Simulated assay, not measured.
Amino acid sequence: MAVDVDGLSTLFNKDTCTRRGLCPVTRIRNQSEIVESHSVYYEQHGTGPRKVVFIMGLNSSSFAWAAQGDYFGKLEGYSILLLDNRGVGHSTTPRGPYTTKGMAEDVIVLLDYLDWKADRDLHIVGVSLGGMIAQELALRIPQRIVSLTLAVTTPGGHWWTNFPPWKGVVGLTKLLLTPEPEKKIAILLPTVYPQAWLDAKAEDDPEGRTNYEVQVVIYRRRIAITAPQFFMGAVSQMAAGLTHHVSAEQLKTINDTIPYIHIVTGDSDNLVWPGNSRYLAKCMPDAEFEQWEHTGHAIHVQRPAKFNSMLERSFAKGIRRCS
């Protein structure tokens, strides 16, 4: 763990960090919702020409990208951008409810702030709610995007169709009503990972711990260096997920304007029905789709090496299609 500028803590490698701070999002362009001024926390790692934007999901900070930040931050040729969405992590919490459109506008403000404006220059990676935000980005700045990776996400629809499976509903409700960090961890882990995986021995762990034991340590560390999330931020992000909707016609537009799209889901997801990813693939026939066996919602954490390898291939395919 490193403590750096402005007294804000980070889990990412300070040696690869090129800039970090708070983007003063004082005016969100083309946004219908009314929110007060707020700031978005970000970190950039690396200085290479391949620019990757990682967008995290519901009520999770950018630190959930730890495995991706460590890997791509040190990989030659990459510049990666990690951010905390409004209402979580080191970002501020404006009044809600939020929308995925408004959260996407936050990202665009940040990209402009960092001068990441060039055409066909960005690889966008979104997981869960981050994937919903990524879809909105693809509709707003398609000319800037080289590749789009949509992991364990959905195009949404009517709010009542956006609810997760029952186990996810129960888990999210308990998390919302549970203030104690240790109790939150015990609720969260079986919600985002398959129980069989949690019970199994962790690969390459010198202490021979189970995946559950390893993840408890990781989540304790994340909680320890991140300010507790306000109730307003949690329910407002939930509102964004429940109201998200990108139509079949809009998905076709994304299909036709983004050079390369990759859709990935797990078969044991308790928060977003895997069928939503299959529907995305149906509406975007040029996209590549895969479903991983025995894999839960936190797909990028449960299968980090496989996920990172998939991203490298996706980025390369996007670049080839633009050449």
Rank of each mutant, 00 (worst) to 15 (best):
K167T: 13
V52P: 04
M284S: 05
G96I: 03
L129M: 15
I124F: 03
T18G: 01
A67E: 15
G77H: 11
A239I: 07
L175E: 15
V52N: 11
P49W: 08
A134V: 01
I254P: 00
M56E: 08
A248R: 15
T295E: 11
T243D: 10
V3A: 01
R19E: 15
H45I: 00
M238S: 08
V192W: 10
G208Y: 12
L242I: 07
I218A: 03
P179V: 14
G233I: 09
G233R: 11
A2Q: 13
A316M: 09
R209W: 06
Y98M: 06
V109M: 09
G208K: 11
S37M: 05
A240R: 09
M103Q: 03
C17W: 12
I319G: 03
P164N: 12
I55S: 05
A64D: 03
L150G: 04
A200I: 11
S62G: 02
L139H: 11
T92G: 02
L311Q: 12
V272E: 04
Y260E: 14
A196L: 11
E105I: 01
D256L: 04
D121L: 00
R19D: 14
A227T: 08
H294Q: 15
A316Y: 13
L122S: 05
E33C: 01
P190W: 14
T295S: 07
V5D: 09
V25R: 00
P285V: 10
Y193D: 13
S39R: 15
Q250R: 08
P285N: 14
D204C: 04
T265C: 08
S39I: 03
N13H: 05
G48S: 05
I187T: 07
V25G: 00
T243P: 00
I133A: 06
F315A: 10
N255Q: 05
D269G: 06
P179T: 15
A227I: 02
R140K: 02
H123W: 09
Y193S: 06
A227L: 04
P194H: 13
G73R: 10
L110G: 00
L139C: 06
E207Y: 05
R303A: 01
K117P: 01
P94I: 11
H45C: 02
L81V: 15
S91K: 09
V301M: 12
P190N: 14
K167H: 13
K14P: 03
T149G: 02
G130V: 06
T26H: 10
Q68T: 11
F289P: 00
S323E: 15
G21M: 10
Y42H: 03
M132N: 02
